[in-house]
């Protein structure tokens, strides 16, 4: 079962086993993870599910699509050219079955 770890500013973290095919925004919102808002329900329309993917897990992910790339320009916290992603566009599956992300200090 895929596993996601959310790291908060200040050092605490939360880890969850999630269903294959679930995206990180949904995983965060259903588990009540602070700091992920997900206002638009996963349509890449709001830029409030910003996460920084930790380096070792970047290679297994497909690159951001055009919509995600555009919305990443609108995130509230600074955009990292490599690590910034929208949680709603990152899905865990058999290939990328583990991930650790940092939650930015602000989403709005």
């Amino acid at each position: 079962m895929p596993r996601v770890t959310f790291h908060h500013d200040g050092g605490s973290s939360e880890a969850f086993d999630i269903a294959a095919g679930m995206n990180l925004m949904r995983a965060a919102v259903t588990n009540g993870v602070r700091g992920i808002v997900g206002e638009c329900g996963g349509q890449a329309m709001c830029a409030t599910c910003h996460v920084y993917v930790r380096e070792p897990y970047l290679r297994a992910l497909p690159r951001p699509g055009e919509d995600e790339n555009e919305m990443l320009d609108r995130v509230a916290a600074p955009r990292d050219p490599r690590r910034s992603r929208l949680g709603c566009q990152v899905t865990l599956d058999a290939v990328a079955d583990e991930i650790e992300v940092d939650i930015p200090v602000s989403q709005t």
């Binding site: 808002v37 206002e39 638009c40 329900g41 996963g42 349509q43 329309m45 709001c46 409030t48 509230a76 602000s106 989403q107 709005t108």
Partner: peptide
């Protein structure tokens, strides 16, 4: 700044919000 529900929330959030 903090989120509110003026445009709704979730998949039905106002398409014209931008």
């Amino acid at each position: 700044r903090q989120p509110h529900l003026g445009f709704g929330s979730g998949v039905h959030r106002c398409a014209g919000h931008w």
